[in-house]
């Protein structure tokens, strides 16, 4: 049985690699088939370049080659760590993504942790008082949050805390007009709070409702009935039975929601003009910056896959039947 575990993980990882490959083909095709001419977005619409020079560049870039050949070239360069040049930022895509991802990762990681912890606690609390006022309040709150568009919540938060109360800066990640050397960690945190708050409350609904549902299932089980009959207090119930049986599924759910986290991050960043990957995605797509867009698509896919991979492995931990069968469909 112990030997089945690495095999299970390897089979998931293999499938993930295959999927990553397919997703990269999908994104590549979508971007290359776009009516936006990469050459035109590179030289600009008012360029005085002659037709021959343009044809020269196109040949140099391999734009005249068929699609599979272009994909092969892209993958080859990718494996050498070369993602091309970003037209928007006039820098290599790798360094753009690297810099911007460091901002976004902080935002996403913190929002992920906070929403997980708060959502889990709220879910346990609500499920424990099922039908009570607190439960109904939390449930309603979550339903409304889940139905609210991320960017709308962001706008309201921005307009209330920043414009009305003046407590927080109006967007950006660092104060404008300050030298890089003068920017303190406090400045950065000050600018991070509102986007973080937005992203956290957007992600909180799902985990809360999930935990609440799970808890209600557990509370109706025989072993809780037996524990109560033994005279265990609520506190003991929580620490002995409930945490153990709800924590892992909740963590798994959090890992499998990387996709929504990324989408929420992109929207929150746009509202707060936060210079992360989200704003870069929009900028790249609006400016016809194919290399950057492709790079971001790949990174985001990698991000989602790593979340799914961890979630799938955790499913195996939670449910031993999956581990033994090795079948996870």
């Amino acid at each position: 049985m112990h030997t089945a575990r690495p095999k299970y993980i390897a089979s998931i990882a293999g499938r993930m690699l295959l999927l990553l490959f397919l997703v990269s083909i999908l994104s590549f095709t979508l971007i290359v088939k776009a009516p936006i001419d990469p050459l035109l977005s590179y030289v600009g619409a008012e360029s005085t370049l002659s037709e021959e020079a343009k044809a020269e560049i196109a040949r140099h870039w391999g734009l005249d080659a068929p699609l599979p050949a272009r994909y092969a070239t892209w993958v080859k360069n990718l494996l050498h760590g070369d993602l091309g040049m970003s037209v928007t930022y006039k820098r290599p895509v790798r360094s753009v993504i690297g810099e911007r991802f460091s901002y976004s990762v902080v935002l996403m990681l913190l929002a992920w942790v906070f929403s997980g912890l708060l959502g889990y606690a709220a879910g346990i609390f609500a499920g424990f008082r099922r039908g009570g006022l607190a439960d109904r309040g939390i449930k309603l709150f979550c339903l409304v949050l889940q139905s609210a568009p991320t960017f709308w919540l962001g706008l309201l938060i921005l307009s209330f805390f920043s414009v009305k109360l003046g407590l927080f800066p109006f967007g950006m990640a660092v104060p404008a007009g300050k030298l890089v050397s003068e920017i303190t960690l406090g400045d950065r945190i000050h600018h991070l709070i509102l986007p973080l708050f937005t992203l956290t409350i957007v992600s909180i609904g799902k985990i809360t409702l999930f935990t609440r549902q799970k808890l209600i299932e557990i509370m109706n089980s025989d072993y809780i009935l037996f524990a109560r009959a033994r005279g265990e207090s609520d506190r003991q119930l929580v620490f002995r039975h409930i945490l153990r049986n709800t924590a892992l599924p909740a963590v798994t759910l959090q890992f499998s929601s990387f996709s929504e986290l990324f989408g929420g991050m992109a929207l929150a960043e746009t509202v707060f003009s936060y210079p992360g990957v989200g704003t870069a995605t929009t900028a790249a797509a609006l400016n016809g910056d194919a290399p950057l867009l492709l790079g971001i698509a790949l990174i985001s896919a990698l991000f989602v896959f790593s979340g799914n991979l961890i979630a799938n492995i955790l499913y195996g931990v939670v449910d031993p039947r999956l581990r033994e069968g090795g079948d996870y469909v």
């Binding site: 999927l19 929504e260 929207l267 929009t282 698509a297 985001s300 896919a301 989602v304």
Partner: peptide, 21 residues
């Protein structure tokens, strides 16, 4: 199905919108 869910939904939408101009 997995391929379609592999990209964040928003990114996929942006890519499709990009392709269709």
């Amino acid at each position: 199905v997995d391929c379609c869910m592999g990209l964040p939904h928003l990114v996929l939408l942006i890519l499709i919108s990009y392709m269709l101009g």
